[in-house]
Amino acid sequence: MKNCFILFLLAILMVSNSNLAFPQAKKPSIMILPSDVWCNINGYMIEFDNQGTREKVPDYKMAFQENSDLILVISKINGMMADRGFPLKNAESELKSLATESAEESMLMSKNGGTINESPVDKLKKIAKADIIMQLTWTINNQGPKKSITFNLQGIDSYTDKQIATAAGTGAPSFSAVVPLLLEEAVLSHLDNFNSSLQTHFDDLFTNGREITLRIKKFNTWDKDLETDFDGKELNVYIEEWLSQHTINGRFSTTDATENMMLFEQVRIPLFDGNGRAIDARGFCRDLQNYLKNPPFGIINKLVIKGLGQATLVLGDK
């Protein structure tokens, strides 16, 4: 009886700690956006003067407000992705939330007259973002009375800028089908192939670790740089050695290195730390931050992150 009770207690403990026993990696967020090409072809661009150069950027807000085909395609993809357990971030709602949040923050005031503190960097970071962007392009081909759709769906990793999933192709030409119907058919035809290549990316992530981009920079107020010697070795060598020890199979590429900055790409970090907690670029770089704070370096530094996969460590100040 006593043994039964102990077993029962153990079972309850195992169930309640199942998250610790089987930790879950941080789930990437996905958002669909029309591509620049699509926005340009359909006239959803804003032109502005960037210090004498005319530049065009997509006007997503206008695209969402005016193009019902775009809403249909996004809605269809959203539904199918939600069915696969990956509900997407809705770009249109995200843009609305950002506008509301901005208005609310500008009005917020404490009883003593204090307002929300926001640096220029904070302002820059207030954009619609996701870990993976599904970039959508389609064109309507007219061959006499027949119409067909060329559809292209690209999954772009926001941090490495790599295309991690794709599905593209031209549908069968039709005499009678209307454009929304052809678009719906294109989504049905391509999304499963897209998800299949996304699955390959996730498999790679679980086997070889999350791929992140890491930048090391220095404040101009710091009197040292990345070529400063510590115990007979340059600081940049220590950083590379640390990365070599802490990345999966020592996998990273030093893309750029000067006395002021280092750029590491294809840095494969583990999905979990020593305690089994899920980590991302921030969690990984916090260890590097502590390593550089401690002797023999004693370098004060500031960690700035972008989502799950991009981190910048600025040395010499907070």
Binding site: A25, R84, D192, D203
Partner: peptide, 21 residues
């Protein structure tokens, strides 16, 4: 194929897109 994939996922033969997250 969607129903087939779902049933194979339930049977633990095909990996779900969310497996591990």
């Amino acid at each position: 194929h969607t129903q087939l994939r779902k049933d194979l996922e339930t049977a633990g033969i095909v990996k779900k897109l969310t497996d591990g997250f």
